[in-house]
Amino acid sequence: MRGTGVGSFPGDSQRDYEEALAVVLGELAPDEHGLAFVPEVPGRGAGAAMTGRTLGMVTELDADLQPDGWRLTGTSGAPALDQRRARSLLGQDLDTLEDRAAGHAGPFKVQVTGPWTLAASVERPRGDKLLADHGARRELAQALAVAVADHLADLRRRLPAATELILQLDEPALPTVLAGGVPTASGFGKHRTIHPPEASEALGWVLDAASAAGATPWVHCCAPDVPIGLLRGAGARGVMVDLDLLDADGHDAAGEALEAGDTVGLGVVPTTGPLPGDRVLVERVLRWLDMLGLDPERVGGSLVISPSCGLAGTTPAGARHALELARAVARSVSP
């Protein structure tokens, strides 16, 4: 069993990114109970937040930053200034990673925003979200698949000793997309429901690209009504969820995933308020497994312990403590 983080850290400078990376490597890299990852520090600006960071990777589509958020420009050629900045910042972060972790000889995780959260966040050239346009949704997902393959190849070059690369696709908006709950630009209506076959197809393009690049594809969704079955059907070999937000169907679906040998990332470390002791969290994980009738010795190797969501809203000390707790719980529950 391993402990890990979702991705984001507090801070607003490059120094904060360097300190976040030092915490990740210090807390999660030393032994088999930690899963290190590429940290994100969204407080540095729109280009470092989840949407801008991923758009910086996508070289097949050009985007710029508007007052209401990111928008595709509808042009090809030189990307806009904000997208170039996002791309440059990501490259700088990966240079730092390579310098600090090139000899890392364990698994390593990287996070990328998924196609449906992007479609619900990014605007078309003429306004409103990409979610409103079937062709734009398709183009975005396919461009993201290419970007993910390139990104993983770059990471493999930078981390040649890593035993496994894990691609975590962040999809916090997916349940809202499936439920037809994303507001239109006017605010007076909602975008139409995206049906499961289309949602699965777009996810599959990106997850398959990760698998073809030699990485293990996971999906993270810290929202209610996570469609765990749909994600696994689309190719996810791991799902990361917030335990507090799972309903009865979600608990059963997570248990089925563990029994099938897929990974479940269980978000049990709080990201707000005082942090409990590791004993409290260990007991909670064991009670959850007992509720599902699962033997920790049999499924423990497929269970990952994490904070319930990102850590950008906490303090640096709080973020470090959260990762310490995740690893401590994983070590204690491990058979």
Results as ranks from 00 to 15, higher is better:
A78C: 06
L72H: 02
A80P: 12
A102R: 15
R100N: 04
G74A: 10
D95N: 11
P107G: 08
L94A: 06
A78L: 13
R87Q: 15
R71D: 02
A105D: 15
S76E: 13
S76H: 13
Q92L: 10
R71F: 01
G91Y: 11
L72A: 04
L97W: 07
A86N: 11
A86I: 12
G91P: 03
G103V: 04
A86F: 08
V110Q: 07
R84V: 03
G69I: 09
G74F: 08
A80Y: 07
R100T: 00
T75D: 05
G91H: 14
K109V: 04
L89K: 04
R100W: 03
L97E: 03
K109Q: 11
L94Y: 07
D82L: 13
G106S: 11
F108Y: 14
L90G: 01
A105V: 06
G77F: 09
R85Q: 07
G91V: 08
P107L: 08
A101F: 03
Q92H: 10
L94D: 03
W70D: 00
S76D: 12
G91T: 13
L94C: 04
A101G: 00
D82H: 14
R87D: 06
A105P: 01
R100D: 00
P79K: 14
L81M: 09
G106V: 09
L90F: 02
G103H: 11
G69P: 06
A105N: 13
Q92K: 12
G69D: 08
T73Y: 08
Q83T: 12
Q92G: 02
E98V: 00
D82W: 09
T73D: 07
G106H: 10
P107E: 03
R85H: 01
Q83D: 10
G106A: 14
R87E: 12
D93M: 04
L72M: 09
R84D: 01
E98C: 01
V110A: 15
G106Y: 06
L97Q: 06
L81T: 14
R85C: 00
G103D: 14
K109A: 11
G77Q: 13
R87G: 06
P107M: 09
A101N: 04
P79I: 11
R87H: 15
A78E: 15
L90T: 03
G74T: 06
K109L: 10
G77S: 12
V110G: 05
Q92T: 09
D99Q: 14
